[in-house]
Every structure is written in structure tokens, then in C-alpha cells.
């Protein structure tokens, strides 16, 4: 460990953060207004609803769905969703034969523009290591029981590729509008630890 770490180990984390903020603002490297806008945006505006709209459109518009599977980043940009950690988006489609689940084994790579910031469990060392080794058990523990003959594919996100799951459209939703469908889609379904139900 170098100095930045060892010299600050015993200082409470909130003070380390405050020291960073003070020094960076004083030196004109961070504009507090810009910083507050980022925080507000991610707390309030960027959330899984973006991803839910993408899923609902893919369920109702076959041409969009094809573009989404061919070029995830380009297709979601059509809906205005882009930004940090949205580059190199790859969409993987669930079927009755294959269920996809996403992890970032090294840190917490996650498609922010579509899903907001990752939930605590996604960043947890236990999820990151176990879902690769024993996905069926981990999914069971998270409340998702898949048929035995459904194959589970685990996708490891990285800085090069962010994976996003296109869940299966639930049955009996033929008459649902796109907005009604979007309301059914949960964040967990788009990470692949849940399914969408009507």
C-alpha cells in the first residue's frame, strides 16, 4: 500500500471524503454545483425505469428488439439512454431454454444509464464469487427457481462489455400497452436474478 492509503487508514471515512472534497473544490478541480447535479440525477432520475422502457419496447417492436440484440448501445441511444458505463452494452435474451444472469466478478461494472447504480448485493463479494460457481443455488436463494432443463448462462461484465438481460415477456400480457409492460419489469429481472410476472 502506498502513502495515500496507509497514512489515512485510521481516519474515519467520512472525514477522508470531506478532505478530498474540500481540497478538490478549493483548487477549482471540482465544481460543487456540477457534483450536486450528478448526485441528484443518479439518486432521482436514473433508475431501472430506463431499462424497463427498453425491455417493453423490445417486447412490442420486433425491429427494435433486433437492433437491441445487434447493437445494444446504439439501440438504447435511440431512446436517449447514454452516459458513463453505458458504452459497449450487450443485450442477452432469456428464453425457456436459456436463462441469463449478470455479474461483475472484479468490481461492479453495471449499465448505469439503464439501471441506475447497482444494488448492494450486486457489489457484495459473496454474490460476485458464488454466482459464477453455483448460479442455480444463488438464484434459488434469491427466490428464483428455474426448471431443471433451463440452462443458466452467467455473463461477467467488465469495462469492455456491460451485459443487460432481456427477460421473457410474461404470458397473458398480449393486451398490455408498452407503458403497462414497462411497469412490470424490475431491476432484478434485467440483471437476471428474477423473472417478470404479470
Amino acid at each position: 500500500m502506498n502513502n495515500a492509503q496507509s497514512s489515512s487508514d485510521r481516519i474515519p471515512i467520512n472525514l477522508r471524503t470531506e478532505a478530498l472534497e474540500q481540497l478538490l473544490v478549493e483548487r477549482g478541480l471540482v465544481d460543487p454545483q456540477v457534483m450536486d447535479t450528478f448526485i441528484k440525477t443518479y439518486e432521482k432520475d436514473v433508475g431501472p425505469l430506463n431499462g424497463a422502457q427498453v425491455v417493453a419496447k423490445a417486447w412490442t417492436d420486433p425491429e427494435f428488439k433486433q437492433r437491441l440484440l445487434d447493437d445494444g448501445t446504439g439501440a438504447v441511444a435511440e431512446l436517449g439512454f447514454k452516459g458513463p458505463q453505458g458504452e459497449h452494452l450487450v443485450v442477452v435474451e432469456n428464453s425457456s431454454a436459456v436463462h441469463n444472469v449478470v455479474v461483475c466478478t472484479l468490481c461492479s461494472c453495471y449499465p448505469w444509464p439503464l439501471l441506475g447504480l447497482p444494488p448492494a448485493w450486486y457489489k457484495d463479494p459473496a454474490y460476485r464469487s458464488r454466482v459464477v460457481r453455483e448460479p442455480r443455488t444463488v438464484l434459488n436463494e434469491m427466490g428464483l427457481e428455474l426448471p431443471k432443463d433451463t440452462e443458466i448462462t452467467v455473463w461477467d461484465s467488465s469495462s469492455e462489455v456491460r451485459f443487460f438481460v432481456l427477460p421473457q415477456r410474461p404470458s397473458d400480457t398480449e393486451k398490455f400497452s408498452e407503458a403497462e409492460l414497462a411497469a412490470l419489469v424490475t431491476r432484478d429481472a434485467m440483471v437476471g436474478v428474477a423473472q417478470v410476472s404479470a
Binding site: N14, E21, L24, D31, M35, F38, I39, Y42
Partner: peptide, 14 residues
Amino acid sequence: WQSRAFGLVMSLHE
């Protein structure tokens, strides 16, 4: 402090 740390990284990156 977590949101401050998040905002700092986003601002500096941008």
C-alpha cells in the same frame, strides 16, 4: 459521505 464520494468521481471524470 457515500454520495459525496460518488459525485466527486463523476465530476472529476467528466
